[in-house]
């Protein structure tokens, strides 16, 4: 199994940390992982993205131009990464702030109202965990228990009390993912 993912949105949406948690979860189940962010002033006020690869084999290129899955959280990223999903691959997006919805016919498309649900729960910080939950519902590449272990690893000790909240958010995301198109 090799899953090549791009997660893209605005800086501040928790894109990088979502990728990090996914990568940690992979390590918890003895897989190879890589996490390659966009970096530098190109991120200032603008977009942030990260390529995450989880695999059973030694990972070759950490930099890709074709993805199994694209998780898209703003319009710029939609414009940039929709064309880079492999045919038959998966696109998951949050429609909040999206004016041009995905239009490809050869990929699976799902959406999740992450921003809306996070606002309803009164905590915008868990937005990325809701989206992660939606993704794991579509592609259960890592087990929830390993995500929790991964969270423990990536969060500083003083934030461990927040883990149950994050778990709830993941479950909420799993429940709220909607199919737009399946091929």
């Amino acid at each position: 199994m090799t899953e090549e993912i791009i997660i893209a949105g605005f800086g501040g949406q928790g894109v990088l940390s979502m990728g990090k948690i996914l990568a940690y979860s992979g390590i918890m189940q003895d897989q190879e992982v890589s996490w390659m962010p966009s970096y530098g002033p190109e991120m200032r006020g603008g977009t942030a993205n990260v390529t995450v690869i989880v695999s059973d084999e030694r990972i070759s290129s950490p930099i890709l131009r074709a993805y199994d899955t694209a998780i898209i959280l703003n319009q710029q990223s939609m414009d940039k990464f929709e064309p880079e999903v492999k045919p038959g691959g998966t696109l998951l997006y949050d429609p909040n702030g999206i004016s041009r919805h995905p239009s490809r016919k050869d990929i699976n498309i799902f959406k999740v109202e992450g921003a809306k649900k996070a606002a309803e729960m009164g905590n915008t910080k868990i937005f990325n965990m809701i989206v992660l939950g939606a993704y794991l519902k579509i592609k259960p590449i890592v087990k929830l228990e390993n995500v929790v272990k991964g969270l423990k690893k990536s969060l500083p000790e003083r934030h461990h009390k927040l883990i149950p909240l994050n778990e709830d958010a993941i479950l909420l995301g799993m429940k709220n993912v909607e199919v737009v198109q399946e091929v």
Partner: peptide
């Protein structure tokens, strides 16, 4: 790339 990338 190697500087910024995370791996185990």
């Amino acid at each position: 790339a190697i500087g910024q990338m995370m791996e185990k």
